[in-house]
Design a protein around this nucleic acid. Structure first.
Lengths: 140, 140
DNA sequence: CAATCAATGAGAAAGCATCTCATCCTTATT
DNA sequence: AATAAGGATGAGATGCTTTCTCATTGATTG
């Protein structure tokens, strides 16, 4: 029941918001991370007349509402993914852009310890590993 | 002997490059991280007629040459700092922007282990913690 | 000191993201 | 259902960071 997701966070149920949520859900299964532009193009492909400004607005609202996470990978534009439960970090292939996800309790623990030690109240973190994936290593 | 730094990496010794190197060195002691715009403003303040395009060009060259590291913090524009030896990660205050640096061998080790496990040839990483620094906690 | 080739400045251009505002649509209320 | 009220949207303008272009200037080698 998607429309409930929107009401729960105090957002009106509108066609753009439903469509964008649906696209994020659909792509999430494949582990994809979409830029606003990506989402916009998918909408166009599916015949929806939704403006790019709306896509940005909605994604930003979704982020503020906790429905979505935004990541700043190298190279500029940020990407979004559904925030279904568990936190995870990313490892990005520098050649093909493939992204894998992982979590490491030990790293999380150390992060908290470091913040404590430096007197920071830890609120968030961003950990991204960059490398060459198996497939691209072979293609050499 | 700064000009040698430039020759060592195959760059001609020019006034803009010397000046920018010098600014990075000067600010480095304070732990500051400068955007291209910051560097440009400092140059203006000091009466140097150096174009913004040159600042970007030079910083990018310095990065390619390994003299400088570029970081993509949240919010858009990237910042630069001198790459004097040791690698380190960053913790950024979400209120005042203050940046502390740290390294944690345990985290580094885990990162390598994770990359191995996922079949990636690890090349680089970006770890940024976000929180509220001691000073800003008190200002509440 | 001359010749060569790279470096620079200034402005144009690109790319991502946000803003503006008139119009449209959801929602709460009749 | 119909309506009023205020939020949401589309399209284009705008802002901001970064890169590109190209004519000019400057560093380096012999």
């Amino acid at each position: 029941m998607e429309s409930q997701d929107l009401r729960n966070v105090g957002l009106k149920v509108t066609l753009p918001r439903m469509k964008i949520l649906e696209i994020l859900e659909r792509q999430h299964h494949d582990g994809y991370h979409l830029s606003a532009e990506d989402v916009y193009k998918i909408l166009l492909d599916e015949g929806e007349k939704i403006g790019l400004a709306t896509v940005y607005r909605v994604l930003t609202q979704f982020e503020a509402a906790g429905l979505v996470r935004r990541h700043y990978f190298e190279g500029g534009n940020s990407v979004f993914e559904l925030n279904r439960g568990g936190h995870h970090d990313h490892i990005v292939c520098l050649k093909c852009g493939h992204i894998d996800e992982f979590t490491d309790p030990e790293i999380e623990k150390r992060q908290q310890a470091i913040a404590d030690q430096l007197g920071f109240e830890l609120q968030d973190h961003s950990l991204i590993l960059y490398g060459i994936c198996t497939r691209c290593q072979k293609k050499k």
